[in-house]
Amino acid sequence: MNKNRSMFLISGLAFGFAFLYIPILSLIIFSFNESKLVTVWAGFSTKWYGELLRNEQILDAAWLSIRIAVINACFAVALGTLAGFALARLGRFRGRTLLTGMVTAPLVMPEVITGLSLLLLFVAMQDLIGWPAGRGVTTITIAHITFSMAYVAIIIQSRLSSVDESVEEAALDLGARPAKVFFLITLPIIAPALISGWLLSFTMSLDDLVIASFVSGPGSSTLPMVVFSKVRLGVSPEINALATIIVLLVAVGITIAGITLNRQEKRRQRDMQMAVAANE
């Protein structure tokens, strides 16, 4: 290996990761800052965590956001799995192209457009059929499900594509009806994808500011909306504390997931070696 070249690559990598992580680190460091000025260091303190935990507005918004995120994730996984299954397994049905389009477009569609269009739909629906009555938790949840399910559908579709279809055919062949095949064979095999789809939907719902702002109503301010209104006025140490907690939760979650995956992979390899050895 060319030494210069690998040096170049490593420094590129180091620069990139520094760029990605320095802002996050600075958030964490200044969350322990005594001073209200956030970026001017005035000694170590955990008082902003206390302030955060006493801030009713933030806590309420967080609780609301979590509720929406959980409901959203469950619905998005159910709907997204159906869509992903249809795309990966049902061949060339009529309207397939349109479904593919409707599943991929939300991934890149600017949020302001999605938000505005959904709001206009909800207003028109209220006019026509009286539902949903006003904007609030329901409309936010519907909006979140719509874009989350697109992500889930993509995840499920790509996972299913890598699963040998004859496994499902074998179950059919052995006498299981299609619905039973789905629950006994397909779902267990794609379980990891379901979990990651759920988590992704949860996170994205928790993270969404723009769409929620359009389709929310009075009294339904989500956490990002409260955070946005605060940080628009400038930096606030409580927000740093909040960010630190979120980063910590995510980091712990991802590390655990990573370690589990790694272990499974290692066990798998060991099993495989064992099988080969047993055969000889």
Partner: peptide, 15 residues
């Protein structure tokens, strides 16, 4: 699933 026929798949298709 109602046929009196079973198949052994090329990829084995084990669950």
């Amino acid at each position: 699933y109602d046929r009196p026929v079973n198949m052994m798949f090329q990829s084995y298709a084990l669950f």
